[in-house]
Design a protein around this nucleic acid. Structure first.
Lengths: 161, 161
DNA sequence: TCACACACTTACGCGAACGTCAACGTCAAA
DNA sequence: TTTGACGTTGACGTTCGCGTAAGTGTGTGA
């Protein structure tokens, strides 16, 4: 969890880079793409709490597979909002489509977790020098099928043509 | 949902490409990386049901953010499995680490969905030419903060330095 | 005043994951 | 036999998301 901060906080590029575990270069890159617009003190960038919130959203967006341009569009909701019906309606459609993708993705993530856990169970049993139990085999059914894809051409039927 | 198929099914590259909505080039690329090994009829690739299952896993892996090399490692569980303790133990750690990332990601996805839905509600109210209701505003709090990040330097305090 | 840390801009580089030719083979239908 | 759809193998091109210098301030403590 990211700690909340006072709304009038200010940050240097290095502070935020460290907090979010990215490089300063990354933050400058996002700025160059127009995703954040920190103010300046001289030439140095000063980030506000709102900038910080944007960065948080950018990184979360990335983690769930949004491209930077897509994240930018979300960040620019304000601009869309001021753009009237013509911009609003297609944006609503894109957002809706995105939500559908994300719901698919949530399912994907859950299946991936299940698959990795099945693989883990398999490996752990192997660590104990015994062949996986029936229970584990059942849960790792997917891996067995995959393994066969590799083994078949070598150990399988000598002539198929 | 992907339809299940008979275990002795065979597919051409185009069939699978269409089914999974990728180009043939993509499947050849995965093969070149050693992730699938379809048999040949002459020079033409013939994909088995197991190959198909592998492709399914590859694409799901991609959707949740795995790099192809990581997916390959998962697919090669069999090889790891035959590699003895030295390969098994680090693999177990990597799998475990991955699961943790995925669980974080599941949370990210849920928050992203919530945020997009809040944004949608906001936009829909705007479509009806009224300023968002308090309820929507509350749920779209994140967007308000983000909007401010943009508006502050223009409409905000005239002198802050 | 010097050194040093840290910032800035500009610009080229890079790996991943394919796209896109180009040039060719193959098989069935007309 | 020609046409056309579909397949093959290189090999180079492209986009994304930064990394990595190179060269230049800017401020701060010894």
């Amino acid at each position: 969890m990211i700690k909340p901060v006072a709304p009038d906080s200010e940050f240097t590029i290095r502070e935020l880079a460290q907090e979010f575990d990215v490089t300063p270069r990354t933050l400058r890159f996002y700025e160059q793409k127009g995703m954040i617009t920190p103010t300046r003190r001289g030439a140095a960038r000063i980030y506000s709490a709102a900038d910080r919130a944007r960065i948080e959203l950018i990184l979360r967006g990335k983690r769930v597979g949004f491209a930077l341009d897509e994240i930018k569009e979300i960040l620019d909701l304000e601009a869309i909002d001021r753009g009237g019906r013509e911009r609003l309606e297609p944006a609503i459609e894109r957002f809706t489509a995105r939500i559908i993708v994300l719901e698919q993705q949530r399912e994907d993530v859950e299946r991936a977790i299940a698959e990795l856990q099945a693989g883990l169970a398999w490996m752990r049993e192997r660590l104990e020098d015994r062949t996986p139990s029936d229970d584990v085999r059942r849960r790792a059914r997917a891996f067995e099928a995959l393994a066969q894809a590799r083994l078949d051409p070598w150990s399988g039927a000598p002539s198929t043509g």
